[in-house]
Each structure stands twice: as C-alpha cells, then as structure tokens.
C-alpha cells in the first residue's frame, strides 16, 4: 500500500479528475438541452429504429398494459421487446453479445437500448402532444 502511494504523482490525480469531468460532459449537455425544451404537455415515446429507419413508436406515458412483440430483422435475427407500463426492455435477442438484454428496462428520456449486431436502437424521446395523428399513420 505504501508503495502504491509513492507511485502516484500529482499529475495522475489531476488527469483522473479531468477525465471524470470530461466523461460527464455529454450528460451535462443533454440535461441542459432537455431543460430547455421540456414543455408541460410532453409525453414519452419509445422510438424503435432498425438500420436507421424508424419502424415503430410506442407511447409510454399513461401506458398501463403489458405488451410483448418481436422485431424481426432477418430470418435468424430477432429481438423480443417487452413494454411494461412505462418501461421498455429487450426481453431476449438472438445476437451474439446480449448487451441489449443486459441493459434492462429504460423509462427516462434520452435513455437508449442499443443492439449493435442487429443495428436496433430503442430511444426514449419526449414529444409534445400534437403530432399524434402522424404517429398513428406510421405505426399502422
């Protein structure tokens, strides 16, 4: 232990603190942005995109049901998504790394579940109530 403290130099500590602050930078920018655009009527929508193309929007605010559906990318690439009240998660996936399943349920704006092998992204966005009509057209 004594050896360890002898080993640490001043710049080590300065660097580590700087890097911690740097890693919170995107988080800070994001909360700042959210605070700027947060309206009263905003509702949360989970947007599911496959290969950069939006395939489905699931409204989360006020949702009281449990729904399970599959996203089929190709024959052997399938992710099962579960929407439980205001949370969404990937229940199972056929991908190699399973990072998306381990991410667990998300419910706050800006949170994402990413399945890189299948190029699936689930992102929670906060929107205002107006464009509901369009959403119905997209999801049908």
């Amino acid at each position: 232990m004594k050896e360890f403290f002898q080993m640490v130099k001043t710049w080590d500590i300065i660097l580590i603190v700087l890097l911690i602050l740097l890693s919170f930078l995107p988080f800070g920018i994001f909360t700042y942005q959210q605070a700027a655009q947060a309206g009263n009527d905003s509702t949360l929508v989970a947007v599911i995109t496959v290969d950069n193309q939006e395939t489905r929007r699931v409204p989360l605010t006020g949702n009281t049901e449990t729904e399970v559906f599959d996203i089929v990318v190709s024959e052997h690439e399938k992710n099962t998504v579960e929407v439980d009240h205001e949370h969404i998660r990937i229940k199972s996936a056929t991908c190699s790394d399973q990072v998306c399943v381990r991410t667990g349920a998300i419910s706050k704006p800006g949170e994402t579940i990413v399945c890189l092998p299948h190029k699936i992204v689930i992102e929670i966005q906060s929107t205002t109530n107006e464009p509901t009509d369009e959403e119905i057209i997209i999801s049908s």
Partner: peptide, 19 residues
C-alpha cells in the same frame, strides 16, 4: 453507427469502471 449521440450518455458508467 446508431446515428444517435445519446449513446454517449453511457460514458460516466464506463469511465468509472475504466478508472
């Protein structure tokens, strides 16, 4: 690749373990 920079919000968790 995912075309959304919100993935970067994951950075604090990773860098904590990285440290």
């Amino acid at each position: 690749i995912a075309q959304t920079w919100t993935v970067l919000l994951y950075l604090p968790v990773l860098s904590f373990i990285g440290i």
